[in-house]
């Protein structure tokens, strides 16, 4: 027995409320991040990731309160992403009770920020989020590029070179989202995940495209991911985290019971 593969539900939070509608039976307030986090914790989630999609920076304090409230009663690792641009943003989230922050756009525009953040707070709490899109033509060897602005803007940066650099700069973990698969429910881009996972020393979280439990297992078995992240299949109670774990276990994957 050894290290378990992790299952991480992800919640999009806009101005303190969970969006993309979470649908649970027996839940009083489907928009309350604290109540949903509590529920996922009871179901056996290994970590919880919050993505702050609040557009206005004036409302960013709301996220701090959400993290504070969740951290007072949910005792598993909590990650916060979205709008992390400065050292002070990281400090605020960690002080509120987050264990890790995920840095996306700010890393692309200023890679040194990752170095500074890891030096200051330790690699263990710095996740670099990577939005990747396949740019190779059919018949060519696969190649993926970093995109920003929700997958709309290419940067010209090769994904494999980028994740190696982020590993070297002190990222403690890579959260890898396939922008080709995000929202499609046809499964992770397992070629992408495997290439990234083999390119870096640090753990890789696969994200983007999960539609069923086989997809989660494939992320680990084919993509060699260390953790799998999903949103909608858990939110809409299509599957519980317990069912996801039982399925993965039946496919020979080590999970936390």
């Amino acid at each position: 027995m050894s290290l378990a593969k992790r299952i991480i539900p992800c919640l999009d939070v806009d101005n303190g409320r969970v969006v993309k509608g979470v649908q649970f039976v027996e839940i009083r307030d489907a928009g309350d991040p604290v109540e949903i986090a509590r529920r996922y914790n009871l179901e056996g989630a290994d970590e919880i990731t919050f993505l702050d999609i609040t557009a206005s920076s004036d409302n960013r304090d709301t996220m701090v309160h959400v993290v504070e409230d969740v951290a007072s009663e949910v005792f598993i690792p909590l990650t916060v992403g979205g709008g992390i641009r400065e050292i002070s943003d990281i400090r605020r989230m960690l002080n509120a009770g987050a264990d890790k922050v995920s840095i996306n756009t700010a890393a692309v525009f200023n890679p040194e920020f990752v170095k500074q953040a890891a030096d200051k707070f330790g690699s263990q709490c710095i996740v670099v989020a990577v939005d990747a899109k396949k740019v190779s033509q059919p018949g060519e060897p696969y190649r993926w590029e970093i995109f920003t602005h929700g997958g709309r803007k290419p940067t010209g940066i090769d994904v494999i070179e980028w994740v190696r650099k982020m590993d070297e700069y002190g990222a403690g973990e890579i959260l890898l989202t396939s922008m080709d698969r995000d929202g499609t429910k046809i499964g992770f881009d397992n070629d992408l995940t495997r290439q990234v996972s083999e390119a870096v020393r640090v753990p890789v979280i696969a994200s983007g495209g999960v539609g069923d439990l086989q997809h989660l297992a494939d992320g680990v078995l084919l993509g060699r991911a260390d953790a799998v992240l999903a949103a909608s299949i858990f939110h809409f109670a299509e599957y519980s985290i317990g069912e996801a774990k039982a399925f993965m276990k039946s496919h020979g994957i080590e999970v936390r019971d």
Binding site: L3, A4, R6, D46, Q124, E173, R201, V202, P203
Partner: peptide, 16 residues
């Protein structure tokens, strides 16, 4: 690990 599979560092996650 003992079978020669590469292990990620940091050791991160739930272990026994």
């Amino acid at each position: 690990d003992s079978q020669g599979n590469r292990l990620k560092v940091p050791h991160m996650g739930w272990n026994q």
